[in-house]
Design a protein around this nucleic acid. Structure first.
Lengths: 113, 113
DNA sequence: ACAACCTACAACCGATTGGTTGTATATTGG
DNA sequence: CCAATATACAACCAATCGGTTGTAGGTTGT
């Protein structure tokens, strides 16, 4: 997980940086939806929704499976977790800063009351 | 935290969807950096880095304070956590799906061995 | 005072984005 | 077989993005 593969991370955050796509992701995490069922939920063309689904799919946030003439999309929680763990890693960087500040204060009592 | 303010969330994920900005954020979470100190780290113009810093600032991921002629940028861990908590919320949606599937299996023993 | 430095911002450019319409291809039900 | 349905994809468009160069203003040290 330390090897980041920046392009993949770019794609993940980019996919999440659109409210329609976040809403689609929320729906397909809750249950499978066909592309047209998703399209029916939004005030835009079928093609626009289909492109949003494709962006989420390329980022690995959802997967599709064929069921007759329908394509059923399902959210991938592992990808969601991988994004969360990157943020956790960022928070750890910040914790290191705080630890360094605390150490400095402890070693130099003049600094604080 | 339930009120999402989609535009703010868009800005947060968009700001994170660029590897240079993620790297800048990492640095300013670890410690304060002047804009020019940051610019010196990348193979692009000062103005380009300054714009990346501005994007992070508008998203609320970093704040600047004046120190003489320098502008010192510092990462905001609260904003990072707010993104993480949105992802946690998405994961909860997924857990609901799993719970529903489990309940279905429990109520209909024919479905599983 | 003034040269050097730090920052901000405008103007511009090619690439990408998020939307549209239109067309093509599979699959289904009667 | 045929009409309806579901999906995919190309072409196009305005807006935004990530980069550039240039200009201007504030701060510092000598």
């Amino acid at each position: 997980m330390i090897e980041e593969d920046a392009a993949k991370v770019d794609a993940l955050f980019h996919a999440l940086a659109d409210r329609t796509r976040r809403d689609i992701l929320r729906r397909v995490l809750a249950r499978e939806h066909s592309v047209s069922a998703l399209a029916a939920e939004y005030d835009m063309s079928f093609a626009a929704v289909q492109k949003h689904v494709a962006v989420l799919e390329r980022a690995g946030l959802l997967a599709k499976r064929r069921a007759g003439r329908e394509q059923l999309a399902s959210g991938d929680v592992v990808a969601v977790r991988s994004v969360a763990s990157m943020l956790a890693e960022l928070e750890q960087v910040w914790r290191g800063r705080i630890a360094r500040i605390d150490a400095l204060i402890a070693s130099d009592p003049e600094q604080e009351d």
